[in-house]
């Protein structure tokens, strides 16, 4: 099972419910703005705490209110690519990449820095300051940083949003390659029908 999610989240006045399970290599989470898609990703990553429910990713129970399981974010090993990149502004690209890599157990790494640099074409960016990167470059570095942390599963939040058509196309090709080559389930939030049809083995609609 790639993902098994059943959760109820209280976000201020609003409540978000999500329930799905998927065996697909890539599962897409779609729905209108404000449906709580990003909140679901945050809950799976351990950044939000559901009132109740159960979250299993890549075979590991991350949260189970009945069994009182609630792993800390650092123990969940999510490869979370945030919509806004969230690169560390006081570090070079190289230091950003090394951040999670250093913390991951060596035996669990499944991709090397050279492989990531080749896959994402970021070899030339390593010594740059994050402030000087373009939107597409930030996205690629953020994905590389997540992959190097040896995640057990990936959470991609609108990875192609605000990229031009050519950049978006390149990134989709890359996600396809990660999906087909790596043994990590991916949960993708997207607004684009075409993107979802092309990538996803299973689609989850949120109302």
């Amino acid at each position: 099972m790639s993902f098994e999610v059943r959760l109820g989240l209280q976000l201020g006045e609003a409540e978000v419910f999500a329930e799905f399970s998927s065996d697909a290599r890539l599962t897409a989470l779609v729905g209108p703005s404000g449906a709580g898609k990003t909140s679901v990703l945050n809950a799976i990553a351990g950044l939000l705490h559901p009132r109740e429910g159960r979250v299993v990713a890549a075979g590991q129970v991350l949260f189970d209110s009945a069994q009182r399981i609630d792993l800390a974010p650092e123990a969940r090993r999510a490869g979370y690519v945030f919509q806004d990149g969230r690169l560390f502004p006081h570090m070079s690209v190289r230091a950003n990449l090394a951040y999670g890599e250093r913390l991951a157990p060596a035996s669990e790494r499944w991709i090397t820095r050279d492989e990531v640099a080749g896959l994402l074409d970021i070899g030339d960016l390593l010594d740059r300051r994050t402030a000087n990167l373009s939107g597409g470059e930030v996205r690629r570095v953020a994905i590389a940083r997540a992959l190097l942390a040896a995640p057990r599963f990936l959470l991609l939040d609108e990875p192609t949003a605000s990229l031009d058509a050519a950049r978006a196309e390149a990134l989709l090709g890359l996600i396809e390659r990660i999906r087909d080559a790596m043994d990590v389930p991916i949960l993708l939030v997207s607004h684009s029908r075409a993107e979802v049809e092309r990538l996803a083995g299973q689609v989850v609609e949120m109302a």
């Binding site: 990553a45 351990g46 950044l47 800390a72 974010p73 650092e74 969940r76 090993r77 999510a78 490869g79 979370y80 945030f82 806004d84 969230r86 560390f88 502004p89 006081h90 951040y99 999670g100 913390l103 991951a104 940083r145 997540a146 942390a149």
Partner: peptide
């Protein structure tokens, strides 16, 4: 200091203390 950066550090495997020492403190 943007809390979202601290969250990012946590998902990358940093304990609260490490996230503080590497993100909040230097920034």
């Amino acid at each position: 200091v943007d809390r979202k950066l601290v969250e990012a550090a946590r998902t990358l495997g940093a304990s609260p203390l490490r996230a503080f020492a590497t993100i909040t403190l230097p920034l």
